[in-house]
Nucleic acid binder design. Structure first.
Length: 430
RNA sequence: GUGACCGUAGCUCAGUCGGUAGAGUCCCAGAUUGUGAUUCUGGUUGUCGCGGGUUCGAGCCCCGUCGGUCACCCCA
């Protein structure tokens, strides 16, 4: 036997029971985005490497060691996108969508990061994202957070909390960074090794260190909220007021920073403690400087992205309604003549009821074997077409399981073909 | 990238002190020539992840490697 292939590490297949959940998720998401007037943008999976280096930040882990990059035949460095925002801004600029106008966009698709896989983290993973351009005020921050809340609610996901912070403008962040570094340097001996390393490379990341000893030190640290400029403070307070108006609960977490360099002012995360170490389910914030940084005119922007695999894990663990995707009806046919008639009838029925999920037995087999397949398919009804039925244009209708009301299965019936519409129609309504 | 634990039939797993490779399930056939799900009978299924070492003999011990899971790190 030839050696069998395996999927590339961290790249997963999604199989039929789960694909139904994915479809449900995408249906809910599409409805949620449409409810706020967001239009879908489809972006390529591959971009020039420098796009990500310029937008995400040269010293972030993503750019330094997690990108799938390679040289194409012309020698250009290309990268499988590690996130969606950079591509979205690039596409917006390339097509003139962002100049002096407002845009509400969403996207969905795979992202790629070369990390060690673990629960809720894969090398190819999927994100849904929303981005809003050309609106500077807290009202659009509020809208996009409300959209995220509606999405999570629509998926039946509970047990998540919203955390919020403001990073201020680039200038206040610079001022705060200096103050924080000064503070941390005084206490460098008390920090864990990882935080000491980050102290000068990316000091804000020290704030969300998991080390208890470092968190002890941080209790006395200056907070970014205190360093906010007046405009950022007013923006942040208006957002909090708006969330209260909409009844969206949140907590301000002054230690919340995000890993990507382009954020400014509002940052937020929806967090769960039901996914082991990967608690962040959906996260985003404002990135007012990025469009200009990528060559556009100054354009305010805000957005978020969520991890589809993480949402799926939550939907599963919280026992949400599994969408019904099995067949309604399994059609058994005995002999060549009945088989031809069955395939012809099945096409007619599918024309008549577009929602009907009908499996026609293939591969022959005696009736016992066909009924066994019918049972395994999950179908509610088996239809049996043999030579006797074919001769008088009738069909046997056999119930394979108790119906939704729990009543005992009705006995097997013989129906004329003409009588079948009423019977199947009733099945489709339930 | 670092660490811990785990890799035996399509699936879930057992395998004692190093001594012939096992169970359940699934699938197929029959009991039942046109009745599933229940029952009974029979049958198919293996590079014990891979490579090397120790040994008369390795699924079991040792080294390496690949893969999986979880954690660190990072992030969605």
């Amino acid at each position: 036997m030839a050696k069998r292939f395996q999927s590339v590490r961290g790249f997963n297949d999604v199989l039929p029971p789960d694909t139904a959940l994915w479809q449900q998720l995408h249906a809910v998401a599409a409805r949620s985005f449409a409810a706020y007037g967001y239009g879908e943008i489809r972006l390529p999976l591959l971009e020039h490497t420098s796009l990500f280096a310029r937008s995400i930040g040269e010293v972030t882990d993503i750019v330094e060691k997690e990108m799938f990059s390679f040289q194409d035949r012309e020698g250009d460095s290309l990268t499988l996108r590690p996130e969606g925002t950079a591509s979205c801004v690039r596409a917006g600029l390339e097509h003139g969508l962002l100049h002096n106008q407002q845009q509400r966009l969403w996207y969905a698709g795979p992202m790629f990061r070369h990390e060690r896989p673990q629960a809720g983290r894969y090398r190819q993973f999927h994100q849904l994202g929303a981005e809003a351009y050309g609106m500077a005020g807290p009202d659009i921050d509020l809208e996009i957070i409300a959209l995220s809340a509606r999405l999570l609610r629509g998926l039946g996901i509970g047990g998540v909390r919203l955390e919020l912070n403001s990073l201020g403008t680039a200038e206040t962040r610079e001022r705060y960074r200096a103050a924080l570094v000064a503070f941390l340097e005084r206490h460098a001996d008390a920090l864990d090794a990882e935080s000491q390393r980050r102290l000068h490379r990316n000091p804000l990341r020290v704030l969300d260190s998991k080390s208890p000893q470092t968190q002890d030190v941080l209790r006395e640290a200056p907070t970014i909220v205190d360093a906010l400029d007046a405009d950022s403070r007013a923006h942040f307070e208006a957002l909090q007021q708006g969330l209260a108006d909409l009844g969206i609960a949140f907590t301000v977490n002054p230690r919340l920073v995000r890993g990507l360099d382009y954020y400014s002012r509002t940052v937020f995360e929806w967090i769960t403690d039901q996914l082991g170490a990967q608690g962040t389910v959906l996260a985003g914030g404002r990135y007012d400087g990025l469009v200009e940084q990528l060559g556009g005119s100054p354009t305010p922007a805000v957005g978020w992205a969520c991890g589809v695999e993480r949402l799926i894990l939550l939907m599963k663990s919280q026992g949400g309604v599994t969408p019904e995707s099995g067949a309604h009806v399994y059609l058994c046919a005995l002999g060549d003549e009945a088989g031809r008639a069955a395939r012809r009838l099945a096409e007619q029925w599918r024309d008549t009821w577009p929602q009907l999920r009908l499996i026609v037995n293939a591969g022959g087999g005696k009736l016992a074997a066909q009924l066994k397949r019918a049972d395994r398919s999950g179908a509610q009804l088996a239809l049996i077409l043999g030579e006797a039925e074919l001769a008088d244009r009738s069909i046997q209708v056999k119930s394979l399981r108790a119906d939704a009301s729990g009543a005992a299965s009705p006995p097997q019936q013989t129906l004329a073909w003409a009588e079948l519409p009423a019977r199947l129609g009733g099945l489709l309504e339930s």
